[in-house]
Design a protein around this nucleic acid. Structure first.
Length: 929
RNA sequence: GCCGAAGUGGCGGAAUUGGCAGACGCGCACGACUCAAAAUCGUGUACCCGGAAGGGUAUGAGGGUUCGAUUCCCUCCUUCGGCACCA
């Protein structure tokens, strides 16, 4: 028996990588004669080791880039390093190695690892964000944003990580306990003077995804993150005469505002608080300030607050309403003050019940439901029978140990009839109430409606007079909310017809909001307004290893940008990076000293550095011309390559990098630096590779898969193919060491077939060759489609299937034929994007011209791919009973006849006449009988 | 709580438009080769009943639409991700 020639990936991979490199095979240069394609994969952070996740993100992206190149595109697929950031500094502190040295050593190592992928990276375009030739332009961008009013400095409470000793952006604070994204330490609040970018100015535009093909998931995440709400801003007045502006999404509930709540930090609190209340207010403010966000924002926490002693005037009805402070109102959203409408807001309801504040319903229930509980003994004999006779729904159940009560449920239009009936049966010294859609309290002599603060108290007073047991209640709502039967009708937050709202009563829910806003605007007491959860981007970091913020502070001239001809502001190498909570640059003896660019007098540099998301917001532009020194990028390169056609990477950046980079592009567009509205037209996210134990990979779990070791054992081609094969790319899956064996077997079988293409029989039958060709072109069709759709797993599986077919064809004598030669040629071209080294080697062994990677993608021969016969499925009552092989062009009538004549079909029909015969051309016949 | 995604054999997964469920691979079983093992090759492999022929049941659960549902609709369960007092 012949020795099977061995497949030695290590040899061929090193060989071809060296040759491709020497030949500049993957250089991407402007070529006006070809359509361009900018394929971008998220740039890695140089942590020191390439993770299997990097391979999972990058190698399918590379395969697709290669495919597009074979399709005739001029493809740019660059790589670089996001090389500023905290880990370098943390490593520096831990191991006493300079962050710069640590970073650039890691980059050196990772370059080697990246090269082992055999990806088509054009290394001439590599960009390293920690390199001064890069961050010079990061600084330049800061200055442009400053000059265009998009960067500003503000003292504000910010999230501070006590371990990393720096501020964090909102996006970098994670989880219920609000911990630091990097080190998991819970963050604290700190008041600091910080630089911000005005991302909020672009909030509305960022919500528009019309021109980009991004996953629904990311669009939803960004939309929620931006958190747009439409409503109105309304100006109340304090009794002292200060305007007190609130934002509300429900201006239609304005008449139900029975109190106001300010954030404890609200600037007006001091003026509003009366002398009697001041002590309590100050105490509450101090407590709120002491509390971390963790306590303050705990979801299930009971609401707390204190009365300021002050009152405001509701501008729509002149009502005098108390002003409270409570920490459930956040200073950072809206105006830091709310009008509280307890009847239609869950939080306000809970607060009002707790503190005995009035609750007045002003929006009808859309379902019109009402409830009434008739206490035992409160009505004369025969009331239940009368209800029954009137067709009003109720159940009779015991009320505590008082005896049997009637639990009545009424539709809106039944209320009047019920009231009349009840009044005729109500015993003296009792009352009854109807709650839900309408709020009526029935006494022997009158019916009172809960429609205002005054009626609230009047009703309560009468009830207390009748029943001393309710005397402890402060409001009518507090009194009745003790009855469980009423729980579900006391409060609702839906839109509905306005009531108890003076002349606006009766306005239907669909138009209420609009009409109230119009009224507010006409009266000059408010206007339509939009609010966002999105905040401005906090970019100051009190750390060393980042791009310096190129600003100088002069006591005379204020903040001045460093003149552009003095860029870059270089990071000094001789710093002490021990963590102190101050920027290390501040502790440098001379670095911060500068001359004011304006007056030339002594001034000081900004010692904070920039958030690294600033660096990664524009790296796709630096790739275009990483050595260019006339600007951040060469306009000629920009004009040819931009925008990015496909961007691939992890979903974890949905609300950080991917919002920042869009903001950045739009801001630059408005400055005339970039063109178009979006930087990346198409986005696709890969899933995550889990450990074999189905858990997230981590060193502590010991389930980390090391790509270097895999490459050494199996070769890069196998690792690439397996990563494409083992899961849906967008889903990810647990790693499997035994699974990868299947992929290496496939490549060995491919190798073996290449080495032994001797005909097994003298001639192959016509059918054999036809079948081979059909399968080849069908596979080509599906592989092509799958590349277009990012369905990498089925690319590899259909290649495996075709190889199995080719083995069969060889046994059947196909080897040596023209069909076989074509099959082999197409097969290698299809393998090329997935396993570039094996494909190149076998291509060369087949005596074909170097390089397979510059060959065109083959064309599907539709005629060859077409089936000649089909398997016609025969169903009886929807169940498969038999199958017939028939010509593909069989007519419906012929199919029907063949089905009806079929023995098995007859058997299952059991003599019944077919009621209906469904013929699906080319697929099946279903006989209903 | 709100928003989103996903539930298919022992495992990863496949199934253009509503039309043969389980492609491909792993694993497993048996066989060939071998003194033996590995590698390789071949055959089989959803579950249940049955010796077989054959039949029945199956795509998280329950309903619905349809001649026909993994696919469309409704309710629910589980897992994962995001947001979370946002007025």
């Amino acid at each position: 028996m012949n020795e099977t020639p061995a497949y030695h990936p290590a040899e061929i991979e090193a060989k071809w990588q060296a040759k491709w490199d020497a030949d500049g095979l993957y250089h991407s240069d402007i070529d006006p004669n070809k359509p361009k394609y900018y394929a971008l994969t998220m740039l890695p952070y140089p942590s020191g080791d390439l993770h299997i996740g990097h391979w999972y993100a990058m190698t399918p992206s590379d395969a697709r880039a290669r495919y597009l190149r074979m399709k005739g595109y001029n493809v740019l697929f660059p790589i670089g390093f996001d090389s500023f950031g905290l880990p370098a500094e943390n490593a520096a502190i831990k191991r006493s190695i300079h962050p710069k040295e640590w970073t650039f050593k890691n980059i050196e190592n990772m370059r080697k690892q990246l090269r082992s992928m055999g990806a088509m990276f054009d290394w001439r375009r590599e960009a390293v964000s920690a390199d001064p030739i890069y961050y010079k332009w990061t600084e330049w961008f800061f200055i442009q944003l400053f000059k265009h009013g998009l960067a500003y400095r503000k003292m504000s409470p910010v999230d501070w990580c006590p371990t990393c000793n720096t501020t964090l952006a909102r996006e970098q604070v994670w989880g219920d306990d609000r911990h630091c994204e990097r080190c998991e330490t819970p963050v604290i609040k700190k008041d600091l003077d910080q630089w911000f970018f005005k991302t909020t100015q672009y909030a509305d535009e960022l919500l528009n995804f019309e021109t980009i093909d991004w996953p629904e998931r990311v669009r939803v995440l960004q939309t929620n993150w931006i958190g747009r709400s439409e409503g109105a801003s309304v100006i109340f007045k304090t009794e002292q005469g200060d305007p007190l502006e609130v934002f509300t999404t429900r201006p239609d509930t304005l008449w139900g505002a029975t109190f106001m709540v300010l954030s404890p930090e609200h600037p007006l609190v001091e003026r509003i608080a009366t002398p009697e209340c001041k002590a309590a207010v100050i105490e509450y403010q101090a407590q709120a300030a002491r509390q971390s966000d963790i306590d303050r924002e705990a979801a299930d926490k009971e609401k707390t607050g204190v009365f300021t002693g002050g009152f405001a005037i509701n501008p729509v009805n002149g009502a005098r309403i108390p002003i409270w402070i409570a920490d459930y109102v956040l200073m950072t959203y809206g105006t830091g003050a709310i009008m509280a409408v307890p009847a239609h807001d869950e939080r306000d309801f809970a607060f009002a019940i707790k503190y005995g504040l009035p609750i007045i319903p002003v929006i009808d229930r859309p379902d019109g439901m009402n409830k009434s509980l008739v206490f035992p003994g409160s009505t004369r004999e025969g009331f239940a029978a009368a209800l029954q006779a009137a067709g009003l729904a109720f159940t009779a159940q015991p009320v505590g140990d008082l005896g049997e009560g009637l639990f009545v449920t009424l539709r809106r239009e039944q209320v009047d009839e019920y009231v009349a009936l009840l009044r005729s049966y109500l015993k003296p010294g009792n009352w009854n109430e109807i709650v839900g859609s309408r709020w009526l309290f029935i006494f022997e002599d009158q019916v009172m409606s809960l429609s205002s603060v005054e009626t609230d108290q009047a009703i309560l007073a009468r009830c207390k007079a009748i029943d001393p047991a309710v005397s402890a209640n402060r409001t009518t709502m507090e009194m009745i909310q003790h009855l469980p039967f009423y729980q579900d009708v006391l409060f609702h937050a839906e839109y509905g017809t306005m009531n108890n709202s003076a002349e606006m009563s009766g306005t239907p829910g669909e138009t209420a909001k609009k009409q109230v806003i119009a009224r507010l605007e006409a009266q000059g007491i408010g206007k339509g307004a939009v609010n966002y959860k999105l905040r401005d981007w906090l970019i100051s970091r009190q750390r060393y290893w980042g791009a310096p913020i190129p600003m100088i502070y002069c006591a005379q001239c204020g903040w001045q940008p460093v003149p552009e001809d003095q860029l870059p502001v270089l990071l000094p190498d001789d710093v002490e990076w021990k963590p102190t909570g101050e920027s290390p640059l501040k502790l440098h003896p001379t670095w911060k000293d500068a001359a004011c660019p304006c007056c030339g007098g002594p001034a000081q540099r900004e010692t904070d550095t920039m958030d690294t998301f600033m660096c990664s917001s524009w790296y796709h532009l630096r790739y275009l011309s990483p050595l260019y020194d006339q600007g951040p990028f060469d306009p000629a390169e920009y004009d040819y390559w931009m925008p990015v056609d496909t961007y691939t990477g992890g979903i974890e950046h949905a609300t950080m990098h991917l919002i920042y980079t869009r903001f950045f592009h739009k801001a630059l567009r408005d400055m005339g630096v970039t063109e178009g509205h979006e930087p990346m037209l198409q986005l696709r996210n890969q899933g995550m590779v889990l450990g074999e134990d189905h858990e997230k990979m981590s060193k502590s779990r010991g389930n980390v898969v090391a790509p270097d070791a895999l490459v050494e054992k199996y070769g890069a081609d196998t690792v690439r193919a397996y990563l494409m094969f083992f899961a849906r790319w967008d889903m990810g899956a647990p790693w499997s060491y035994s699974g990868i064996e299947g992929t290496v077997r496939w490549l060995r079988r491919l190798w073996a077939l290449s080495a032994d293409q001797q005909p097994r029989q003298s001639t192959a039958g016509v059918e054999t060759l036809k079948t081979l060709r059909r399968k080849v072109h069908q596979t080509l069709g599906s592989v092509t489609r799958d590349f277009d759709n990012f369905e990498f797993n089925t690319i590899v599986s259909s290649l495996m299937e075709l190889l199995n077919e080719m083995y069969k064809a060889r046994e059947a004598g196909a080897a040596g034929s023209a069909e076989w030669a074509e099959a082999w040629d197409i097969y290698l071209r299809m393998v090329a994007p997935v396993c570039p080294h094996v494909a190149e080697e076998l291509w060369a062994m087949a005596g074909k011209p170097y390089s397979i990677h510059v060959q065109p993608w083959p064309q599907v021969d539709q005629a060859a791919a077409a089936e000649e016969s089909i398997t016609l499925v025969l169903q009886v009552n929807g169940k498969v009973r038999d199958r017939l092989v028939v010509p593909v062009n069989i007519s419906d009538d012929e199919a029907r006849a063949a089905a009806l004549a079929n023995e098995t079909v007859q058997k299952f029909l059991a003599g019944r006449d077919p009621k209906k015969v469904v013929v699906v051309p080319g697929k099946l016949v279903n006989i209903v009988g």
